[in-house]
C-alpha cells in the first residue's frame, strides 16, 4: 500500500531573480512499512522534503497523496490533526520545550488530542520506561545528555502511536556510539510496523534503511541496493548488539 505519493512536487522560496528552487519536480513513493534513508549534499532540499511530507510546509506545485488522500485542500486544523495522529517528528536539535520536564514534553501531543492528565502521564511514563528513561521523568531537558534528549524526543514522537516517523538527521548532534543506540531504537520501531523516513549524512547509518535515496538539487536519484549489502548491514548490527 502506498503511504506517501508525491507527484511533481516543487518548492520555491523567494520571488523573481532571488527565487531558490528547493525541490524541483520531485516524484516519490513510499510504501507502508518502508524504512527510507535520505541522503544528499547540504542545501539539496532534504529538510524541505521532510517538512512537506510532515504537513508542516506546503509545496508550491504538485500533488501529495497521504494514504491516498490529497492533502492540498486540508484546513489548518485538519493538518494539525494529522500531524498529531499519524506523524511523529524527530529533529536534529531535539526540539524539546526547555521549561517543561521530560515527562511533560513527552505527554504534550496527548494534550492536544484531549487526553486526561492521568492518561497522559501514564502513557508518557510507559514510553519513557521502554526507552530506558524511567528515572529521568522529572528532569528538565538541559539536565540531560544529547543522547538522552534525543531519546526523549523519540518518546514524544512515539506517544501517539503514529504510522509515520520523520527523522531529520536524528544523530546529527550526538556521538557515534549514541548514534548507534538511536539507530537501534529506530530499527525496533520499524520492526513493529512503522514507516520511517530518515535524513542522514552518514552512509553507514543509511544502511539501516530498507531503501536509500539521494536528493540532489531538489531531485531524487534512487540507488537500488543489492541483497548482499542488505545482509551485511543486518549482520553488522547483530554483532554489535551481541557485544553489548
Amino acid at each position: 500500500m502506498e503511504l506517501i505519493k508525491l507527484d511533481n512536487i516543487s518548492k520555491f522560496y523567494g520571488m523573481g531573480d532571488a527565487t531558490t528552487v528547493a525541490l524541483d519536480n520531485l516524484s516519490f513513493i513510499v510504501e507502508k512499512g518502508e524504512f527510507v534513508s535520505i541522503m544528499g549534499p547540504s542545501g539539496s532540499g532534504k529538510s524541505t522534503l521532510m517538512n512537506i511530507i510532515g504537513l508542516l510546509d506546503t509545496p508550491t506545485h504538485g500533488s501529495y497523496l497521504l494514504e491516498n488522500k490529497e492533502v492540498a485542500n486540508l484546513s489548518q486544523k485538519d493538518r494539525a490533526r494529522i500531524r498529531r495522529e499519524k506523524i511523529g517528528f524527530i529533529f536534529q536539535t531535539f526540539n524539546l520545550i526547555p521549561q517543561l520536564t521530560v515527562i511533560e514534553n513527552v505527554a504534550l501531543p496527548l494534550l492536544y488530542k484531549g487526553a486526561s492528565y492521568v492518561k497522559r502521564m501514564e502513557a508518557a511514563s510507559k514510553v519513557l520506561k521502554s526507552l530506558d528513561l524511567g528515572d529521568r521523568e522529572y528532569y528538565l531537558p538541559n539536565q540531560l545528555s544529547g543522547g538522552q534528549r534525543q531519546r526523549v524526543a523519540i518518546a514524544r514522537a512515539l506517544i501517539n502511536k503514529p504510522s509515520l516517523i520523520l527523522a531529520d538527521e536524528p544523530t546529527g548532534n550526538v556521538d557515534s556510539k549514541t548514534s548507534e543506540n538511536i539507530m537501534n531504537i529506530l530499527k525496533d520501531i520499524h520492526k513493529k510496523g512503522n514507516t520511517i523516513l530518515m535524513v542522514t549524512h552518514n552512509p553507514d547509518l543509511a544502511e539501516y534503511g530498507t531503501r536509500v535515496i539521494h536528493v540532489i538539487d531538489g531531485q531524487i536519484e534512487e540507488k537500488n541496493r543489492s541483497t548482499q549489502n542488505k545482509k551485511k548491514a543486518t549482520k553488522k548490527t547483530n554483532k554489535k548488539a551481541g557485544k553489548k
Binding site: G54, L56, Q76, K77, A80, R81, R83, R84, E85, F89, N95, L96, I97, Q99, L108, P109, Y112, K113, R156, N160
Partner: peptide, 14 residues
C-alpha cells in the same frame, strides 16, 4: 516553542 507545539499537532486555536 510555538513551532515545536505545532509540529506535534497543536492547532492555531490551541
Amino acid at each position: 516553542e510555538i513551532g515545536i507545539r505545532k509540529s506535534i499537532g497543536a492547532t492555531n486555536s490551541n
